[in-house]
Design a binder for these strands. Structure first.
Length: 492
RNA sequence: GGCGGCAUAGCCAAGUGGCUAAGGCAGCGGUCUGCAAAACCGUUAUUCACCGGUUCGAGUCCGGUUGCCGCCUCCA
C-alpha cells in the first residue's frame, strides 16, 4: 500500500499513483502579497510543508511550486495609498512572508514564481483560449465563457444553473454570463499595465496559476493544493482555463486544508478576527504552533485559542522533558551499537517499540497524512521511555545507553517530517522561559536570584524560607523543579 | 435559497463494519520528594448529537431530524 489521501475532485480517499514513478509535482496557491501573514496562512504552509516532506521521506523526488500573487486590486490600492508602486508593496510582504515562514521552520518550496514574472505566458494562454472560442473580448477586457467549458463546476460540485439561482452573483454588464470571469482587465488610470494584443491591461487572478503550474510542472501534473476557500471559484477557474486551453487533464489530485477558526468562525481578514503570524511567533515557540496545527487532521477546522495553544505547549514540554532526560543519561550523540539479540527486559521492550515506530508512523501518514495519529504513536513511545528511565531498577549500561540514543534518533528522524523536536532541549526550555516571562513582564534575572537564595536556604535546611520563595514564585505562575543537578524553573 | 462538511469523555482529538473506542490537556488516588514540581502506575466514554434502517455484527454504511461551520464575493 502506498500513500492514500482525500481528493477533492473525486470526494474520496484514493491511492496516490504518480504521473512519473518516484516523482511528485505539487502546486500550491500561495499568498497575495498585500499584508502580513496570519495564523491561517501558517496552517496552509505547515500542512503542505509536512506533506512535501513526507513524500520525500517516502522516497519521492518532489517538485513543489508555490506562487506569490504580486499584482492584484488590494496591492494596487495599498500602493496608491502609500504613494509607491505595487513592486515595492509586494516585495515588502514577500520578504515578511519569507521571514515568518523561516521562523516557523517551513522549508522553502522548490520554486516560488511570481505572477508579474509570467505575464507573457498569461497573454499566450489567453490568446489560446480566444482562438478556441472559450473566451471573448469586451472593450479592453477578456472573459472566460464558462458555458463553453463542459466540465465547469466539477471540482466544487456545482453547476452553472444552480449558481445562477444564487443571490450573490456579481453584476457586470460586460459579462455574457454572470458566472464568466475575467482573464485580462483593461487598465484604468493609475493602475499598472502591460501591453497585450487587447491593449494595455493586467491579468485576472486565476490565470497566473494556470500559467505557472504549466510552466514548472507541465499541462498535467500530480497534485494541486491550497486552502479550502480556493475551491470555488479559484481552482474551478484554473481547471477551466488549463483544460480548456490544453485539452488535457490538469491536476490529477486536489488537496485542500481546513481553516483556523476563532470562536468557531473562520479566521479571516474580512472578519478582522485574525492573529498575525509574527505576533503568534513572539508568544509561542514555532514548534508549539506547528504542534497545535498538526495535532488535528489537516482538513478539520481548528480553533485558535489561548487554551488550545497552552495545551500544545504542554505537549511539546512532554517531549522535550523526555529528550532532556535522555541527554542527561545517555549524553549527546549516538551511543555505541549493541547487538539487539543481547538485550533483555526493558531495554529489549524499548528497542522493539522504537523499531516499530517508523512503520506505525508511515501507516498513519499514508492514510491521508494523519499527523494526529502519528503523533499519538510518538507519545506512546515517550511514555514508555519515561517509565523505563523512572524505574527503580533502571541502570545505565552500554545497552540502555544504546537503546535510549536509538529512541532519540528515531524521534528526531520522524519529528523532522513534522518539523518538531529539532531543538536542543535546554535551548527549547530557555527560549520558552524567556518568551513566557517576557509575556508576563517578569525578569529572568530576578527569578534566578530568588532561586539562588532558595538554594542556600535549602542547604541550611531552612524549609520555611525555601517554601516561602517557592510559593511567592508560584503565585506568579513560576514552577520550580528540584533535580539532582539543581533547580530548574519554567512558566506554568 | 443552492452546494458541501462536521457532531466521539470536563476540554482537544484519532478512529480504514468485527478482539477490551488511540493519544494529549485537565482532575482524582498512589509511587517518588524535606514538602513540591516533573515522571511513572491506576482511574475518568457499557458509549460515539437524536430517530429509524441495512447487516450475524455499525462510532464506522443508508435515510431522516436537530445543532454548528464553510463555500456560493477577495480570502490559506
Amino acid at each position: 500500500m502506498g500513500i492514500r489521501f482525500y481528493d477533492t475532485l473525486t470526494k474520496q480517499k484514493t491511492e496516490f499513483v504518480p504521473l512519473a514513478e518516484g516523482k511528485v509535482g505539487i502546486y500550491v496557491c500561495g499568498v497575495t502579497a498585500y499584508d502580513v501573514c496570519h495564523v491561517g496562512h501558517a496552517r496552509s504552509a505547515v500542512v503542505f510543508d509536512v506533506i512535501t516532506r513526507y513524500f520525500k521521506y517516502r522516497g519521492y523526488q518532489v517538485t513543489y511550486v508555490k506562487n506569490f500573487t504580486d499584482v492584484d486590486d488590494k496591492i494596487i490600492a495599498k500602493a496608491n495609498r502609500e504613494g509607491t508602486d505595487i513592486r515595492e508593496v509586494s516585495e515588502r510582504y514577500i520578504r515578511e512572508h519569507n521571514d515568518d515562514m523561516d521562523r516557523l521552520g517551513v522549508s522553502r518550496p522548490s520554486v516560488t514564481p511570481r505572477a508579474t514574472e509570467n505575464i507573457q505566458g498569461m497573454i499566450r494562454l489567453i490568446g489560446t483560449l480566444l482562438e478556441k472560442g472559450l473566451a471573448y473580448r469586451e472593450e479592453g477586457d477578456v472573459y472566460f465563457a464558462v458555458d463553453r467549458f463542459p466540465g465547469y463546476g466539477k471540482l466544487s460540485g456545482r453547476n452553472i444553473d444552480e449558481m445562477m439561482a444564487g443571490a450573490r452573483v456579481d453584476v457586470d454588464e460586460k459579462k455574457h454570463n454572470p458566472m464568466d470571469f475575467v482573464l485580462w482587465k483593461g487598465s484604468k488610470p493609475g493602475e499598472p499595465w502591460w501591453d497585450s494584443p487587447w491593449g494595455r491591461g493586467r491579468p485576472g487572478w486565476h490565470i497566473e496559476c494556470s500559467v505557472m503550474s504549466q510552466r514548472y510542472l507541465g499541462d498535467t501534473f500530480d497534485i494541486h493544493g491550497g486552502g479550502e476557500d480556493l475551491i470555488f471559484p479559484h481552482h474551478e477557474n484554473e481547471i477551466a482555463q488549463s483544460e480548456g486551453a490544453s485539452g488535457k487533464p490538469f491536476a490529477r489530485y486536489w488537496i485542500h486544508n481546513g481553516f483556523i477558526r476563532v470562536n468557531k468562525e473562520k479566521m479571516s481578514k474580512s472578519l478582522g478576527n485574525f492573529f498575525n503570524l509574527r505576533d503568534a511567533l513572539t508568544q509561542y515557540h514555532p514548534e508549539v504552533l506547528r504542534f497545535f496545527i498538526l495535532q488535528s487532521h489537516y482538513r478539520s477546522p481548528i480553533d485558535f485559542s489561548e487554551d488550545s495553544l497552552r495545551e500544545a505547549r504542554a505537549g511539546m514540554e512532554r517531549f522535550y522533558e523526555t529528550l532532556r532526560k535522555i541527554r542527561d543519561l545517555a549524553g549527546e550523540g549516538e551511543a555505541k551499537a549493541v547487538d539487539p539479540e543481547s538485550l533483555s527486559g526493558a531495554d529489549r521492550e524499548v528497542l522493539e517499540k522504537v523499531n516499530d515506530l517508523p512503520g506505525r508512523f508511515v501507516e498513519a501518514m499514508d492514510d491521508d497524512f494523519n499527523t494526529a495519529r502519528a503523533m499519538g504513536y510518538l507519545f506512546e513511545l515517550v511514555r514508555l521511555l519515561n517509565g523505563t528511565m523512572a524505574d527503580k531498577d533502571f541502570r545505565l549500561t552500554g545497552a540502555s545507553r544504546f537503546v535510549l540514543s536509538e529512541a532519540r534518533k528515531k524521534i528526531r528522524e520522524l519529528g523532522k517530517i513534522l518539523g518538531l523536536f529539532l531543538e536542543d532541549p535546554d535551548e527549547y526550555f530557555a527560549s520558552d522561559r524567556s518568551r513566557e516571562s517576557e509575556k508576563r513582564g517578569l525578569s529572568a534575572a530576578e527569578i534566578e536570584a530568588l532561586i539562588e537564595e532558595r538554594r542556600r536556604a535549602r542547604e541550611e535546611k531552612n524549609w520555611k524560607r525555601a517554601d516561602e520563595i517557592r510559593d511567592a514564585l508560584a503565585a506568579k505562575n513560576i514552577v520550580l523543579k528540584d533535580g539532582p543537578s539543581g533547580t530548574t524553573w519554567k512558566m506554568g
